[in-house]
């Protein structure tokens, strides 16, 4: 199994405040990694740092993707390497239809012109899989979409762009039970031995459908515990208190 993503001693700041304090993380091809933690722990910061959001400044450490140091690489170049971030709050782009946007994006990312009819057919199929009405293809991207529809729009892009690394930032939040099932099924169908998923979630429902290989507990900008799928169950039962105490030094590191 080869390394897809390797993060070494990553320190990230916004303004004067350091949010991540030395993250080490390795994601191998074909694996599903889950990051869990309390609100404000730094989970989304980590995702944005991997994607290259200029608002998050890397002050120390580095990020390697397929062995290439991408720490200084711009966001668009990371996307072209095959990194995709499903946003927690996707923006709306009025004036561009969803179909045109995704087709243009696919052309940009893959470097290959997309044939209109073949793309239309695939888009329709993928939208159907996500229980999205076909009329949404002709609507402006995310414009007037509900929160749940925007999340589906992100997963639709994931399915069509087929990145090597999918960063899923609380893709399940704001979705009803049925929508979580549909979205999870689509993520599962995207996943194969050649790509990897790094998923943030607060809910166990999605993990029943997307089985994690590795679970990381992130507290106060540090990964304090790593384990298999059983770790998610442990969090579900006991919460994060024991890990918080471990970070403060009052508890047991083995929590």
């Amino acid at each position: 199994m080869s390394e897809l993503l390797k993060i070494e001693n990553l320190h990230v700041s916004v303004g004067d405040k350091e949010l991540l304090h030395g993250i080490n993380l390795t994601v191998e091809k074909g694996k599903v990694h889950v990051i869990m933690g309390v609100n404000g722990a730094g989970k989304s910061t980590l995702m944005h740092a991997i994607m290259g959001n200029p608002a998050y400044k890397i002050t120390k450490g580095r990020i390697l993707f397929e062995g290439q140091d991408i720490t200084e690489l711009s966001v668009d170049k990371r996307a072209k390497l095959g990194i995709f971030l499903s946003f927690q709050s996707p923006v709306a782009v009025a004036g561009i239809t969803m179909e045109n946007f995704i087709r243009t994006t696919k052309t940009t990312v893959s470097g290959q012109q997309q044939k209109v009819f073949a793309f239309k057919k695939l888009l329709k199929e993928r939208m159907n899989n996500l229980s999205m009405d076909a009329s949404y293809a002709e609507r402006y991207l995310n414009d007037g979409f509900s929160g749940g529809e925007r999340k589906k729009s992100e997963i639709l892009q994931l399915r069509l762009l087929e990145p090597k690394l999918a960063l899923l930032d609380e893709t399940d939040s704001g979705l009803d039970v049925d929508a979580v099932r549909i979205v999870s099924k689509n993520i599962s169908e995207y996943h194969n031995e050649n790509n990897s998923i790094l998923l943030i979630t607060h809910l166990n429902q999605i993990l029943q459908l997307i089985k994690p290989d590795v679970v990381h507990i992130l507290i106060d900008g540090q990964i304090v515990r790593e384990g298999g799928a059983e770790l998610a169950d442990e969090v579900e039962q006991n919460g994060f208190d024991a890990y918080r105490l471990a970070v403060k030094g009052d508890g047991n590191d083995e929590a």
Partner: peptide, 17 residues
């Protein structure tokens, strides 16, 4: 909006695009 630019760049578009 920098947030909008970032979103579009995360889909492979350059800053200018």
């Amino acid at each position: 909006s920098e947030e909008d630019v970032y979103y579009l760049m995360s889909r492979g578009f350059s800053w200018e695009e």
